[in-house]
């Protein structure tokens, strides 16, 4: 698979504060990556370094095959970090023309991209008259002008109203479906969970995990169960070899698996043992639960 970005032992210090600490990961073509971490965990700093606006303290990174200079590589990248930055006194279309000049691409795609983000009818309005949601969508249009190899988004829904958030998320899903590689930095876990196939988890500048979302915690999921005699069922399950933990709360039993088992097999098995279930759901831990488990484990 083609590598888009390689980061090796990257470190950034702001005085005494270590914002990014010995970070290494790679980004492969075609995947959608989430860069997860609470506020101040070094996400934006990491992106700033690979995007040529923050100087690294040590370590290195390389774009694509490692032979192109960073600023040449950035012409094949589309990126938005933090707030959308444009010339306030220029119209959307003129701003995009300027971006085309900088990236060295033809201006022919401006209409297509503005239509994609739903701003074509406002193309002549000055950037300063745009709402935050529109500014953010314009930034996405601008990042897509060169049909980038990778789209980098840093907190794209930050500060938006629910409608704006929804629009941006739909847009990201749409772009992801076209096969564009995406790196999405966010502290909103459901956002990452909805679109990303891979995650890199950061806390205080240190990488806690990188890999596929569904492998983040080796877990086989859990069952939520209800029956007439909950007490009897929990005692029974506690002695079962496939169940590692049982929690009974609010009339529901949660049984955590330590080996794979599907719901139908489990239901049939319990029925034979004389338990008739009124409620059976098999679930996996949400990314949020996994993330909290991961960050908590590390801090202990």
């Amino acid at each position: 698979m083609d590598t888009i970005l390689t980061i090796n032992n990257l470190t950034k210090k702001f005085g005494k504060l270590v914002a990014v600490n010995d970070l290494s990961f790679t980004i492969e073509k075609g995947n959608v990556y989430g860069l997860l971490g609470p506020n101040g965990s070094g996400k934006s700093t990491t992106l700033g370094i690979v995007l040529n606006v923050v100087n690294k303290t040590s370590g290195n990174f390389s774009w694509f095959d490692g032979k192109t200079s960073t600023h040449e590589a950035l012409k094949k990248v589309g990126a938005i970090i933090e707030r959308p930055n444009f010339y306030p006194y220029m119209s959307a279309e003129k701003n995009l023309k300027l971006v085309c000049k900088i990236k060295g691409v033809a201006t022919g795609k401006i209409r297509e991209k503005l239509e994609l983000v739903g701003l074509w009818d406002r193309k002549d309005s000055n950037f300063s008259t745009y709402s935050l949601g529109m500014k953010q969508r314009l930034a996405i249009a601008s990042a897509l002008l060169n049909d980038p190899e990778i789209l980098i988004l840093d907190e794209p829904t930050n500060g938006l109203d629910p409608q704006g958030i929804h629009q941006i998320r739909e847009l990201i899903t749409k772009i992801a479906n076209t096969g564009t590689t995406i790196l999405l930095a966010s502290h909103l876990l459901d956002e990452v969970e909805k679109v990303c196939s891979h995650v890199v988890v950061l806390r205080k500048g240190v990488k806690l995990y990188s890999g596929r979302v569904d492998e983040m915690i080796a877990s086989h999921g859990f069952f939520e169960l209800k029956t007439e005699d909950n007490k009897k069922l929990s005692t029974f399950l506690k002695n079962h070899p496939s169940i590692k933990d049982v929690i009974a709360k609010n009339g529901t039993i949660t049984a955590f698996l330590n080996e794979p088992m599907d719901a139908a097999t489990f239901n049939e098995y319990l029925f034979k043992e004389g338990f008739v279930l009124s409620h059976l759901v098999k679930r996996k831990e949400s990314l949020e639960e996994q993330f909290l488990a991961l960050t908590n484990n590390e801090s202990k």
Partner: peptide
């Protein structure tokens, strides 16, 4: 306007 940041991200080198 922080456009200097965006210019660099868009692929203008600092020298340019």
């Amino acid at each position: 306007n922080k456009t200097i940041k965006q210019n660099l991200i868009d692929g203008l080198s600092k020298r340019e």
